[in-house]
Design a protein around this nucleic acid. Structure first.
Lengths: 186, 186
DNA sequence: GTCTATAGCTAGATAGAC
DNA sequence: GTCTATCTAGCTATAGAC
């Protein structure tokens, strides 16, 4: 006679869902990196203690790159135009390097250098917001809201999550318009 | 004499960044799932063809769960209150099941069932938005904007990306207030 | 700093008995 | 439908020669 069932598809699915942990970066293997730079895997360990150490440095470098594109905004622009330009630069960066971008908020390694890079990258936008809103605290809150929108939008966009048609560019501009409306000014 | 250098730390970092592909779900191994349901690994293959097939079903189930919590909003609520409640339910779901939540926009498997589940989950919020804004097209755009904000906010929140202090709840409410202001009504 | 060789591990998936 | 046994494959990391 056949062995009695111990489980079921739905039980397996439920267990799988309980099990999901942090997503990794499977493709980034030491050997693949080594091949890219023309050496063998073990040679990398003369440069970095282990894979985690390499990842920490990558994280910091990526954030610095994002800062570099956001900082390109001409100082001559008015605040609102500058904020729009920063947002556009952010989105462009994410679209051009989607997997790389995902490290910025995806690794959360707690690395001090990466954390400092993140803080530094935020600074220009924060200053513009403060000038625009005329209120330091409001600018800080708005920065969080704007960053959330930008991160969510580009994450969905690069993941191909906008699948219902329509003008995606229009949605981006509409979101910016709502979040950059100057309602906090007294 | 020592072997001449073929590479450098910065080259390695650059190569690593070029290499980053899609993040995986390392912890979700077939053996771990099997152990959870009290069987051995190979038994799972009688239920699902392979790991990818299991993941597709998990994805659909997760979206259905998110829909279930968003649908709990009482019909008696006015549109604005209902939209706030839906947003709160979304955020609560992500906070309670962060890793599970990350599958919703993270897997993009192109699975038809998952796609249909996503569409279905969006429907109630979309209807409320249409009633609130009095414009079908504006509601569709606003839904994209709101979803982007929600997804970005909860992704950052669960990743621990809000590291600069301050009231995170206040930022969430501020974002909702800006995105739910009724500026599109004629 | 590079290499070869290898240890040690873990994963996905299959074969065949029951 | 479950099991044991096994295959294949890939990864991190180390040892030691050059």
């Amino acid at each position: 006679m056949p062995t009695p069932p111990k489980t079921s598809s739905s039980k397996i699915i439920a267990a799988a869902r309980d099990l999901i942990g942090e997503p990794g970066l499977d493709e980034l293997t030491m050997q693949a990196v080594a091949h890219r730079v023309g050496v063998r895997g073990p040679s990398l360990y003369k440069h970095f203690a282990d894979r985690a150490a390499l990842l920490r440095e990558v994280e910091t470098a990526v954030v610095a790159d994002l800062e570099a594109v956001m900082i390109q905004v001409p100082p001559s622009l008015d605040d609102l135009s500058a904020l729009r330009a920063i947002a556009a630069a952010y989105r462009t960066f994410a679209r051009e390097h989607p997997a790389t971008y995902s490290l910025i908020f995806g690794l959360h390694s707690g690395d001090a250098a990466a954390e400092q890079a993140r803080r530094r990258a935020l600074q220009p936008a924060l200053q513009r917001l403060e000038s625009y809103l005329g209120n330091r605290e409001a600018a800080f809150i708005r920065a969080r809201v704007l960053t959330s929108f930008l991160h969510g939008f580009v994450s969905m966009e690069t993941a191909g999550a906008f699948r219902l048609g329509g003008d995606i560019e229009q949605a981006f501009q509409a979101g910016l318009a709502l979040l950059l409306c100057d309602t906090a000014r007294k």
